[in-house]
Design a protein around this nucleic acid. Structure first.
Length: 488
RNA sequence: CGGGGCGUGGCGCAGCUCGGUAGCGCGCCUGCUUUGGGAGCAGGAGGUCCCCGGUUCGAAUCCGGGCGCCCCGACCA
């Protein structure tokens, strides 16, 4: 840590900056168990706001919540070949319970496809029972060798949606629909723009037919896989005999999808918006959107100022704003300013005797565009009425800034591996768009030599105006445009 | 799994080379003065120096063994 008061600047050591910020903003802390974390109230508050927004979106698209158990029979995980291959190395297994060795080991879920589709199989007989549109909020465990708070921990919180459909096109539509829900959520709530697209064979979910992804670009030029949506085909329904009688009375296997986002999104938020002073929160997710800091000298001033601060809080609360009054008296105002800025609160109202006299408040934005005044002196009523609008404006500003930052780190029309390498190795890193023949050998070779991975085959909205002609790997014609980046 | 670093009060660290009363900054408690960008003064509390063993009159310090954590890399949906 740089010292007690400041963070290591991003430009000096981005990784150190991130680690220090997460601890110092009190988002999370290391638990006694290596690789797992305690999410502290400030971090959990952000997650709760994410959950609420996402949950509403899931409900609006027809999904219901349910809960499946933490423990899964080992034999279930082993049922689907690719699935078990993908997860085996990172499974935590319960072998003993009740003082005895178990006959069959139980796996702590790394994800719940197997148990969920085995239950769906019990519940579905007819096409009339379909579709099933379900979601669960849960913890999962994947034993990771190298962990980082929020970005990769052994245990994490997430949601996993699981659906069953009567036809392949319906399942594909669902897969795409939920990917779009994620994209929208990340854009509108986290103010984090993402590139959506299809994962290559080597990067797709173990057991899926196809995996779609949301890829975000962090300030250090590395990509973050922020959410995935899988078309599972009939891989799981075949293994768990999830069948139904169709309209013709013929027995058929159901088509499944699954999709998830996790507390990793909190890490994405930090690395998208944070600055050298600390966290910057998009207002829509901020546990506290406005902090009111009273300033006073004498006792009479204190009474009057603190009373006004609480009036301001009530008025803003009535307008639906999340407000906190920081009336602690063992800290001076400056210390409070730094603290709330470190924690990322979007707006601050300072109110002191001079403001009371003039019926004004001082309004400060967590970040301001280059050259703009940081502090605004405003008529109190006017200021309070403008707060909801200002929060939305701040939300928009963060998104714009993030889009600009991503665009500045996106490189299109790249034709050679050398150029690709130079770009991803440069300090800003970023997304590199190239042509690809679809040959997995090219993908493997590039990954090995450049350490960049194929993030996705972007959806049409993100493709370059002129499609690439040649494959990055050589003289073969390009069959599709792809995005490369170093990734978390 | 490889490489590096670190374990000393709540946090950050010095002390270890060269063994001899365990220190500094921040934080914490009490009081007074302060409060518009990280307050000042005075007084105070708080420690199995990661663990085990050894050397020694004496170990935070030297030796042996162990444990833990962090970082970088490899691996990874």
């Amino acid at each position: 840590m740089a010292d007690d008061r400041t963070l290591t600047p991003r430009a000096e050591d981005f990784s150190a900056w991130y680690n220090e910020l997460v601890l110092r903003a009190e988002l999370a802390d290391h638990s006694p168990v290596r690789g797992s974390m305690v999410i502290r109230p400030w971090g959990y508050g952000i997650w709760e706001n994410m959950q609420r927004a996402l949950d509403d979106m899931f409900k609006a698209t027809g999904h219901e919540n349910a809960y499946f158990p933490l423990l899964i029979p080992m034999s279930f995980i082993e049922r689907e070949k690719e699935h078990v291959e993908g997860f085996k190395p990172e499974l935590a297994v319960v072998t003993h319970a009740g003082g005895k060795e178990l006959e069959e080991p139980l796996v702590i879920r790394p994800t719940s496809e197997t148990v969920i589709y085995s239950m769906f199989a019990k519940w579905v007989q007819s096409y009339r029972d379909l579709p099933i549109l379900m979601n669960q909020w849960a913890n999962v465990m994947r034993w990771e060798l190298r962990t980082r708070l929020f970005l990769r921990t052994s245990e994490f919180l997430w949601q996993e949606g699981h659906t069953a459909h009567a036809s392949e096109p319906e399942a594909e539509e669902e897969t795409r629909r939920m990917l779009e829900v994620y994209r929208q959520f990340m854009q509108d709530w986290i103010a984090m723009p993402v590139v959506t697209g299809l994962k290559s064979e080597s990067e797709k979910f173990a057991g899926a037919l196809r995996t779609y992804t949301c890829e975000a670009m962090m300030q250090d030029g590395k990509a973050l896989q922020a959410g995935t949506s899988h078309n599972l085909g009939q891989n799981f329904s075949k293994q768990f005999e999830l069948t139904f009688q169709n309209e013709e009375g013929v027995e058929a296997f159901a088509w499944n999808t699954s999709w998830g986002v996790s507390t990793r999104l909190v890490g994405g938020l930090v690395m998208t918006h944070g600055d050298d002073d600390g966290l910057v929160l998009p207002p829509r997710l901020a546990p506290v959107q406005v902090v009111v800091v009273p300033i006073f000298r004498k006792e009479e001033e204190r009474t009057a100022v603190v009373e006004r601060a609480h009036q301001i809080r009530s008025r803003l609360q009535e307008a639906g704003v999340r407000v906190r009054v920081d009336d602690r008296d063992h800290l001076n105002p400056g210390a409070k300013f730094w603290e709330w800025e470190r924690k990322g609160v979007p707006l601050r109202i300072e109110i002191g005797p001079r403001d009371l006299a003039k019926n004004q408040v001082v309004l400060v934005r967590r970040v301001t565009p280059e050259g703009a005044d940081r502090k605004a002196f405003l008529d109190e009523n006017e200021a309070l009425a403008s707060i909801p609008g200002r929060l939305e404006e701040f939300q928009r500003y963060l998104l714009e800034r993030a889009v600009e930052s991503r665009e500045a780190r996106s490189h299109r029309g790249v034709n050679s591996i050398e150029e690709l390498q130079a770009l991803v190795d440069a300090p800003g890193g970023g997304f590199v768009y190239t042509g690809w023949s679809g040959d997995p050998e090219v993908e493997r070779r590039i990954q090995e030599t450049t350490k960049a991975t194929l993030r996705c085959i972007p959806d049409p909205a993100f493709r370059s105006e002129t499609p690439p002609e040649r494959c990055i790997g050589g003289d073969a014609p390009s069959k599709m445009e792809v995005v490369w980046a170093k990734a978390y």
